[in-house]
């Protein structure tokens, strides 16, 4: 018996974005990073918020090759099955979170369309949840970024242990974070929205000795 024989109940999908007249606010809206960006332009740690990205949590059994193939077709990429890896195709990135779970990021306004298309076209036993509102993304870079991260995360940041493209779900200053290395001196942190202010304050403190530059682009 294959999983495709299981009847999929109708899943209610709701567009979480309000109409275009209402301006979206990230969890760090109150920090006013745009004004902070104007004040300083030299330092060892650079921070940019990649606000209002769309995030989808996908769970399915990768042993079911038919299901995996149809999911890949809708997503337009090959879901990574190697632990702690990621795949980027255009504006879509899929991160391995666990043997049967992936975190997929898309531009904010594309999340609902992808979710709808996935529910329509993929038939089988899977779960796809839009978790865009629960997290925000920070991109930290600069020549001292590794030193700043070493103070905050119980993980080895040496390039041999943590190469570009690797995804590590761990703790950042005791709060959960999904960290992906973008290149030698740049990392993407996906953090919980309720911890965004705390982490923003923590990064300011941890970067003080190197100088923190806020990027806004």
């Amino acid at each position: 018996m294959s999983d495709t024989a299981v009847e999929t109940p109708n899943v209610m999908v709701m567009n979480q974005l309000p109409s275009s007249e209402i301006v979206g606010e990230s969890p760090l809206h109150h920090a006013d990073l745009a004004s902070a960006a104007a004040t300083k332009n030299e330092g060892g740690v650079h921070l940019r918020e990649n606000a209002l990205q769309g995030f989808l949590t996908l769970r399915l059994n990768p042993e079911n090759k038919d299901l995996l193939a149809s999911a890949n077709a809708v997503l337009g990429l090959e879901l990574p099955t190697k632990p702690l890896s990621s795949v980027t195709e255009g504006a879509t990135t899929a991160r391995w979170m666990s043997p049967d779970e992936w975190l997929i990021s898309v531009p904010g306004e594309a999340a609902f369309d992808l979710e709808t298309a996935f529910q329509e076209k993929v038939d089988g036993h899977f779960s796809l949840v839009n978790s865009s509102g629960g997290v925000t993304t920070l991109v930290v870079s600069g020549e001292h970024v590794v030193e700043m991260l070493k103070k905050s995360v119980p993980y080895d940041f040496h390039i041999s242990e943590f190469p570009a493209g690797k995804v590590v779900s761990t703790l950042f200053a005791k709060s959960s974070a999904v960290i992906r290395r973008l290149d030698e001196q740049a990392f993407e942190l996906i953090i919980r929205r309720s911890f965004a202010d705390y982490i923003w304050l923590w990064i300011q403190d941890a970067s003080r000795e190197y100088g923190l530059v806020i990027k806004n682009d």
Partner: peptide, 11 residues
């Protein structure tokens, strides 16, 4: 055994 690497007890 799922991530296939060593991690700190904190996790």
């Amino acid at each position: 055994p799922h991530c296939c690497e060593y991690r700190e007890e904190e996790e």
